[in-house]
Deep mutational scan, measured.
Amino acid sequence: TEDEKKIQELLKRANGDVSKAEKLAQSQGNEELARRLREYANK
C-alpha cells in the first residue's frame, strides 16, 4: 500500500531504526504515519 511504501522509505532513511523513523514521521507532522510505523514494527 501507499502507507507501507512511506513506512519503508522512512525506515530506509532511519537505517531500519523504528524509533528514529517514528520521530522522522512526527517531525513531518505525520502522527498517523508515526502510529502506523509503531504498529508495523510490532508485527
Rank of each mutant, 00 (worst) to 15 (best):
T1Y: 12
T1A: 13
T1E: 12
T1D: 14
T1M: 12
T1H: 12
E2Q: 10
E2T: 10
E2V: 11
E2I: 13
E2Y: 11
E2G: 09
E2H: 09
D3P: 06
D3S: 09
D3L: 15
D3F: 15
D3Q: 09
D3V: 14
D3A: 09
D3W: 15
E4G: 06
E4N: 09
E4P: 04
E4W: 15
E4Q: 09
E4D: 12
E4S: 08
E4M: 13
E4A: 09
K5A: 11
K5N: 08
K5V: 10
K5L: 11
K6G: 07
K6N: 08
K6I: 13
I7W: 05
I7M: 11
I7T: 02
I7A: 03
I7E: 01
I7H: 01
Q8G: 05
Q8S: 08
Q8M: 14
Q8K: 15
Q8C: 15
Q8L: 14
E9L: 04
E9P: 00
E9V: 02
E9A: 05
E9C: 12
E9D: 13
E9K: 03
E9I: 04
L10V: 04
L10Q: 02
L10A: 08
L10R: 01
L10M: 07
L10W: 05
L10K: 02
L11T: 02
L11W: 00
L11Q: 02
L11Y: 00
L11A: 01
L11H: 02
L11C: 14
L11E: 02
L11R: 02
K12F: 06
K12G: 09
K12A: 14
K12L: 10
K12Q: 13
K12M: 12
K12W: 07
K12R: 13
R13H: 11
R13F: 10
R13A: 15
R13G: 08
R13W: 15
R13E: 15
R13S: 12
R13M: 15
A14H: 05
A14T: 11
A14P: 00
A14C: 15
N15I: 03
N15H: 10
N15G: 14
G16D: 04
G16A: 03
G16L: 03
G16R: 02
G16H: 06
G16P: 00
G16I: 02
D17V: 05
D17Y: 02
D17N: 08
D17T: 01
D17E: 04
D17C: 11
D17K: 02
V18S: 05
V18I: 13
V18W: 15
V18A: 07
V18T: 06
V18R: 04
V18L: 09
V18N: 02
V18D: 01
V18Q: 03
S19Q: 11
S19R: 13
S19G: 10
S19Y: 10
K20P: 01
K20T: 09
K20W: 09
K20D: 05
K20H: 07
K20S: 05
K20Q: 10
K20F: 12
K20L: 15
A21S: 01
A21E: 01
A21M: 03
A21K: 00
A21F: 01
E22G: 04
E22I: 15
E22C: 14
K23Y: 09
K23M: 11
K23P: 00
K23V: 07
K23Q: 13
K23N: 07
L24G: 01
L24H: 05
L24E: 07
L24T: 04
L24C: 06
L24N: 03
L24A: 05
A25D: 01
A25W: 01
A25E: 01
A25R: 00
A25I: 04
Q26F: 09
Q26S: 09
Q26N: 06
Q26M: 14
Q26T: 09
Q26V: 13
Q26H: 09
S27C: 13
S27L: 14
S27Q: 14
S27G: 08
S27K: 10
S27M: 14
S27A: 13
S27N: 10
Q28F: 09
Q28D: 13
Q28V: 09
Q28S: 10
Q28H: 07
G29I: 03
G29E: 04
G29L: 04
G29H: 05
G29R: 03
G29Q: 04
N30W: 15
N30A: 05
N30Q: 10
N30E: 11
N30M: 14
N30V: 03
E31N: 09
E31I: 11
E31K: 06
E31Y: 13
E31D: 11
E31W: 14
E31S: 08
E31A: 09
E32Y: 07
E32M: 06
E32F: 05
E32R: 06
E32N: 07
E32P: 04
L33H: 01
L33A: 04
L33K: 00
L33I: 06
L33P: 00
L33G: 00
L33D: 03
A34R: 04
A34V: 10
A34P: 00
A34T: 04
A34G: 05
A34D: 00
A34I: 08
R35N: 06
R35T: 07
R36H: 07
R36A: 12
R36V: 06
R36W: 04
R36M: 15
R36Y: 05
R36I: 12
R36P: 00
L37K: 00
L37V: 11
L37N: 00
L37A: 01
L37T: 01
L37P: 00
L37D: 01
L37I: 15
L37R: 00
L37W: 00
L37G: 00
R38A: 06
R38S: 05
R38P: 04
R38I: 08
R38F: 03
R38H: 14
E39G: 01
E39T: 01
E39W: 02
Y40D: 05
Y40G: 05
Y40L: 15
Y40Q: 08
Y40I: 13
Y40F: 10
A41P: 06
A41M: 14
A41K: 08
N42I: 09
N42R: 10
N42Y: 08
N42G: 10
K43R: 09
K43Y: 10
K43W: 09
K43S: 13
K43T: 14
K43G: 11
K43F: 11
K43I: 13
K43H: 10
